[in-house]
Structure formats: structure tokens, C-alpha cells
Amino acid sequence: MTFTKTAVLLTAFALSACTSADRFGSGSGTGAAGADGSLAGSISDPTSPAYFNATVGDRVLFLVDQSTLSQEAQFVLDGQADWLLTNSEYSALIEGHADEQGTRDYNLALGARRASAVQNYLISKGVAPGRLKTISYGKERPIEICSDEACYSQNRRSVTVITAGAGV
């Protein structure tokens, strides 16, 4: 592992560690690593979804009303693509989320855009399209609940949820 790669992973870990504590408590998608973490495995096992969530980083953040992938987001997604290519027995459900500053319908559409941006990026890195599904939660599932930019910035996210099975 090169020095650069290590640095990226450490950064990803630092980012995801801030938010992963309540990751499963927020009522995320179905068919995912469940609330009981049954699919998660050991965080020290690099082939486990728990490792993916905590170390690779399961989420990327977006600017207001944007679905563009930032440099940081692309680093995290590179790690996600590597992990998915290595661990081909898993698939992923990509959730798109929005902050509360928007109408319900529009935020659903915006979340779909974000999830799709992540999906397309992962496909461009070689992940088979059949292993990646997307869903939008719009503003229905915020992870942070204050009404300030500090929370909004965390809620404007995509979350890559590892699911069992190699996809179709």
C-alpha cells in the first residue's frame, strides 16, 4: 500500500468515524446491513461490511442543491469501488438524501440525482452495474437534526449500503 493510499484511507476513516455511530439508528434503507448489524461483521476484517462502513467510508457529502462529486467524495468512492471489486460477494444500495431546506418532491428528485451520481462513478471504476441499486429518501431520513448548516451539510449525502449477494 502506497503512502498516498494510506493517507486517503485514514482521511476516510476520520470522516466516517464522525457519523457512523448513529448510522444504523436512522432508519435507512431496507435489504441493507440491518439495524442489528448482522451483515456487518468485524471492523478489523477488511472483507466485512463493518470495515467498509468504518474504514473505507460509506458516505459522501454534497453542496446545497448539487449532485457534483467533490475531490474528497471521489477519494472515498475510489475506496468503495476498490472494496466492491475485491469483495464480489456483496452488492450495494446507494441512498441519496437531501437536507430539509427544500420541498418534498424536489428533494426526492435531488436525492435520486445524488445516488445516481455515485452509482455512475462506481460503474466508471469498474463495478458491475448489476451490483448497484439506488434509492432516494429525499429529506425523509436526516441523520443530523438541527436546523443549521452544520447539520444540513451532513444530511446532504449519499450512503452506500452493503447488501448480501453478488447482484444480477
Binding site: S67, L108, A109, A112, R113, S116
Partner: peptide, 9 residues
């Protein structure tokens, strides 16, 4: 109604 497919609604 709206359909969202491939990120486009």
C-alpha cells in the same frame, strides 16, 4: 406523476 430513473426525474 413523476418517475426517477437513472437520477433523472
Amino acid at each position: 406523476y413523476s418517475e426517477a430513473r437513472g437520477g433523472n426525474t
